[in-house]
Amino acid sequence: MNLFSLFRNFFRKGERSSQIAKSRLEIMLKHDRAELTRSEMMEMMDRILMVLRDYVSYDRNRVEMKVKREKGETFLFISVPVIGKPSSRSLER
């Protein structure tokens, strides 16, 4: 990297366009691979998390979903950082 591009990158505002491309692709392919629209996927996540809420408490902001494809099969991965027991267990009724 020459001095000029170093200088320019340093002062460049915002994200690089390649990073924008990558994150757009990641989102696009999640929907393409799972064959779920954005709203379907959000609805599914909400329903899954609603069930989980009865058993564990978790960090909503760090919930992640990935869709991977392997040998012609599609796998959904949902990672939920568990903090502990739910504060009020609706199970104990």
Binding site: Q19, A21, K22, R33, K71, G72
Partner: peptide, 30 residues
């Protein structure tokens, strides 16, 4: 890739064509 795998052709190999090193370096190409 998904279609080839579903057709039973295994996992294909990838060729990335028309890569521009200068654009990648400045963060303007994947």
């Amino acid at each position: 890739i998904g279609l080839l795998e579903a057709m039973g052709k295994g996992t294909p190999q990838l060729i990335i064509n028309r890569l521009r090193a200068d654009m990648v370096e400045r963060g303007d190409m994947l």
